[in-house]
Amino acid sequence: MTVTLVLVIAMAVLFSCGVYLLLERSLTRMLLGFLLLGNALNLLLLTMSGAAGDPPIGGSAEGITDPLPQAFALTAIVITFAVSAFLLALIHRSWRLSRADEVEVDEADVAIRHREDPADDDPELAEEDDPATHHDPKAPEDADDPHGTQPDTDREQAHR
């Protein structure tokens, strides 16, 4: 096995473990998952930069390694560190306030997720919500409509 293949396998394992940990409800596990994803990203950047070469200071221009992927990796390290410090501060604050490391289920989100549209089950409600079936006698386009029915007069005649 070549060095590049080992790095690709390690990167794939880090990505998969990082995503698995990010999907947990524990904030500490989410932080560890984020750190694993950051390290996998650094391996990806360095693997994609190509084979090792000569340093850019020196003799000829042949065989010189491009320093841009290394600069990207350093930038990714700094960003990962900053976001990790922020997540660690959030975890500390959550622990100080509630003595819990778990993310709780928000009842409002659950209610929105399970709410169904009543028009799906009742076709009459779907017709009432349809703007093509509404008749507004005060609207200029409906004022001259001879076939338009007035809902108030129809209801009054039905009750007589």
Rank of each mutant, 00 (worst) to 15 (best):
T2P: 09
V3K: 10
V3T: 15
L5D: 11
L7C: 13
L7P: 06
I9M: 15
A10Q: 05
M11Y: 05
V13G: 06
L14K: 10
F15K: 11
F15G: 05
S16N: 06
C17R: 10
C17W: 12
G18R: 04
G18C: 03
L21I: 00
L21T: 03
L21D: 04
L23F: 09
L23P: 00
L23R: 07
E24C: 10
L27N: 00
T28Y: 01
R29G: 03
L31R: 01
L35S: 14
L37S: 02
L37G: 02
A40P: 01
A40H: 01
L43Y: 07
L43P: 06
L44C: 08
L44G: 06
L46D: 03
L46Q: 06
L46I: 08
M48F: 07
G50F: 03
G50I: 06
A51N: 09
A52T: 13
G53C: 03
D54M: 09
P55E: 07
P55S: 12
P56T: 08
I57L: 13
G58I: 02
G59M: 12
A61M: 13
G63D: 05
I64L: 08
T65A: 15
P67W: 04
L68D: 09
L68T: 15
Q70P: 06
Q70S: 15
F72R: 10
A73H: 02
A73I: 03
L74T: 10
T75F: 10
A76H: 02
I79T: 13
T80S: 12
F81A: 15
A82T: 08
A82F: 11
V83R: 05
A85R: 10
L88Q: 04
L90M: 07
L90H: 03
I91K: 10
H92N: 14
R93P: 03
S94P: 00
S94T: 02
R96H: 10
R99G: 04
A100H: 07
A100F: 02
A100S: 15
A100K: 09
E102C: 03
E102S: 01
E102T: 05
E104K: 10
E104G: 08
V105G: 07
V105M: 11
D109S: 13
V110G: 01
V110A: 12
A111H: 04
A111F: 05
I112Q: 10
R113Q: 14
R115N: 12
D117I: 04
P118R: 06
P118I: 05
A119P: 01
D120Q: 11
D121Q: 08
D121F: 13
D121W: 14
P123K: 01
E128W: 15
D130E: 05
P131A: 00
P131W: 02
P131N: 00
A132G: 09
A132S: 11
A132F: 08
A132Q: 09
T133F: 08
H134T: 15
H134Q: 11
H135W: 13
H135G: 04
H135N: 12
H135S: 07
P140E: 00
E141V: 03
D142V: 00
D142S: 02
A143N: 00
D144W: 01
D145K: 01
D145M: 01
H147F: 11
G148L: 04
T149H: 09
T149C: 13
Q150H: 14
Q150P: 12
P151A: 10
D154Q: 12
R155N: 10
Q157A: 11
Q157V: 09
H159E: 09
H159P: 12
H159Y: 12
